[in-house]
Amino acid sequence: MTAQIRVDREKCSGHARCFAVDPDLFPIDESGYVTVRVQDVPSGQEDAAAAGALACPEGAITISAPGTSDVAE
């Protein structure tokens, strides 16, 4: 199964640190809040997705795949 980016939009506070890691995986709105809610991680971009999740000061991003444990918070 494909890994997924999951963003807790309640927690996102517009730091845009995920955007700084990878602007394509983590697009933002005009104020800096990530616009992704749930999105498949494209093949080969697992590391960038994980780095983006780990860059979030709020711990708002998780990378998950069914059958595997979540990384980040």
């Binding site: 517009g14 845009a16 955007f19 933002i28 709105d29 005009e30 104020s31 800096g32 809040y33």
Partner: peptide
């Protein structure tokens, strides 16, 4: 108020 201000100080602006 934050919503009204956000775009002025967002990364793109």
């Amino acid at each position: 108020y934050r919503q009204a201000l956000g775009a002025f100080f967002g990364p793109k602006a």
